[in-house]
């Protein structure tokens, strides 16, 4: 969900672009972080941990903690909390450490 009315900040409506999350189409705003776009769409699971396969989400949102690593356009371990969203991105829940090849 996006904030519509805020007493201090202004969030003008912006054009939405399309990307995919595990193959499903999702909309977001170009330039916002991938994690912000996913959250706005109600998606909180970003990866599964390497040993116990536990779901992991956003924790620090400033690129520190590695909780939000996802596979983006085939590249694993992208910190989606700081990676800007672009139209057509293929974003996937990462299993463990991800695979390169």
């Amino acid at each position: 969900m996006r904030i519509v009315n805020h007493p201090i900040l202004d969030f003008p409506q912006q054009e939405m672009i399309q990307f995919t999350y595990n193959g499903k189409p999702v909309q977001g705003i170009a330039g916002e972080s991938i994690a912000a776009a996913l959250h706005a769409a109600g998606i909180k699971t970003l990866r599964h941990s390497s040993r116990q396969h536990r779901p992991r989400g956003l924790f620090c949102a400033i690129g520190n903690c590695s909780s939000c690593l996802m596979t983006v356009d085939g590249v694993p371990n992208v910190r989606v909390c700081v990676e800007p969203l672009r139209a057509g991105m293929v974003v996937e829940v990462q299993q463990g450490k991800g695979t390169i090849v």
């Binding site: 969900m1 996006r2 904030i3 805020h6 900040l9 969030f11 916002e32 972080s33 912000a36 959250h39 706005a40 909180k44 699971t45 970003l46 941990s49 536990r54 779901p55 992991r56 989400g57 956003l58 924790f59 620090c60 949102a61 400033i62 903690c65 909780s67 909390c81």
Partner: peptide
Amino acid sequence: NDLPGIYGAGALQTLMNVYGVMPGR
């Protein structure tokens, strides 16, 4: 403590005040 939906305070500020996204209900 690792479930999605558990955040540091700064992360909520980023979602709300930088991106205009509600972190939850």
